[in-house]
Amino acid sequence: MQVSNMVVGQYYPGTSILHRVDPRTKIIAACAFVIVLFMVNGFEGLAVMGAGLAAVIALAGIPLPWLWRGLKPVLFLLVITLAFQMFLSGGEELWRLGPVPVYRNGLVQGAFLTARLLLLVLSGSILTFSTPPVLLTDALGRLMEPLAKLKIPAYELALMMTIALRFIPTLVMEVDRIIKAQKARGAVTSGGGLLVRARGIMPVLVPLFVMSFRHADELALAMESRCWRGGRGRTIRRKLAFSKKDAVFATAVLAVLAASLWIGRLQ
């Protein structure tokens, strides 16, 4: 396992308008996009949404290899979806792939589901590609603020997310170190039967837990010594503010969504 080659988080730094739009606008836009995605029927609607998404990707200046990187983990799911529909749906037979029949309905259905899934993953990725993790959790915290009235600790939840995100790179780096050190001592972390592998993971797992608890302890102490008292009466330094950019962006997204709904509904 080559952990250190992993890009931690997916943020792709940039200064495009998408990077500068308020993260709350982006979150709401992504949610709206996903909802509409499941309301639209037919390829025409999806095509309009896809075009809109492509425009946003181009606008953000995110290079294709980076996009590919975000897609790789779900590629398997996409292929499986397509294959299941294509081969197992039954109905009118379109052609034969060797001994296996491919069904017309299934192919169409599979392509539609795969395209929908692809757009779903891409829309979420665009959000994380163009927003630093800390801003993202800030925005989530702010969006959840009304929940505080229902005695749901919105601020604390957002803080937990921020802290978790903050420690991912640290832990990844430490796991990498630990794996390398234990391998140098002859520990095996891959191959072998289940029992061998389960035992092989102990030399990595135990140090990781010890270290995580130590980090948690130190962080708690540091926060307490700086008088952290939870979310009540807290003021915010990094102000999130809606601006003209947000209005423009939101209008554009709305237009695309409305168009795809209208076209999709005509089916």
């Binding site: 170190r177 390398k180 050190a181 234990q182 140098a184 030399p203 140090p207 270290m211």
Partner: peptide, 13 residues
């Protein structure tokens, strides 16, 4: 090769 990274005690288990 015997390798001891910085703070090797973090790898005791």
């Amino acid at each position: 090769i015997g390798l001891a990274f910085q703070s090797p005690e973090n790898c005791l288990f």
